[in-house]
């Protein structure tokens, strides 16, 4: 006969439990950092204001990467911007998520043959959700956000863990494209 006495959870199980509780809070309060690099950024004002009102999902704009949970990359990334994007991404506090907007972040979009613009964002930083389109509908943007929430719930939004685990790979890609992530130009001694 099985004993009915209380069996204490292992530390791992407790952590898991806490993580699930944390996930509830995290998905219901996504604070965005908008890295408005391209034209897709124009989809954010209707998403934020009375037309679609993302605040009802608990989302809101934040001022700095330290406070934000999700990084929105809204459009093409030139090499100069990519450096800064990586710097910004690394400053965010964990767990952190990335949403790529428009075809530019997926495959370069209309800039696919430009020498100054990168084509695939997920080579450089892990992207959890892509919102396709050139540019995407606001409905698509909102759908992307709900998708991200679902992924957080299912624990599949693992991009930030991936960035830790495969850091060498990401760093290698970054260096291949950029030469180096840091910049030294006339403004910096």
């Amino acid at each position: 006969m099985k004993s009915t006495k209380f069996s204490p959870m292992t530390q791992e199980q407790i952590d898991k439990k806490w993580w699930e509780i944390g996930n509830y809070f995290r998905r219901n309060s996504l604070w965005m950092l908008m890295y408005c690099t391209g034209c897709c950024a124009i989809e954010l004002p209707p998403a934020m204001t009375s037309a679609y009102d993302m605040e009802r999902l608990g989302m809101g704009p934040m001022a700095t990467p330290r406070q934000a949970d999700v990084l929105l990359v809204t459009g093409y990334l030139s090499l100069k911007t990519l450096r800064r994007l990586i710097y910004t991404y690394e400053q965010m506090s964990e767990p952190k998520y990335v949403v790529g907007f428009g075809s530019c972040t997926i495959n370069g979009g209309i800039y696919h043959d430009s020498h100054a613009v990168i084509n695939k964002l997920d080579q450089y930083i892990p992207v959890d959700v892509y919102v396709a389109g050139c540019m995407p509908n606001t409905e698509a943007v909102m759908n992307g956000f709900t998708d991200l929430m679902g992924m957080i719930k299912n624990k599949t939004a693992r991009g930030w863990l991936d960035y830790k685990e495969r850091n060498d790979w990401y760093k290698k890609n970054q260096l291949d494209s950029l030469g180096e992530v840091l910049v030294h130009d006339e403004f910096h001694e």
Partner: peptide
Amino acid sequence: MDTYTAGEFIYT
């Protein structure tokens, strides 16, 4: 020095 600079790199 690892502080928010709006993405700018500042070393001084």
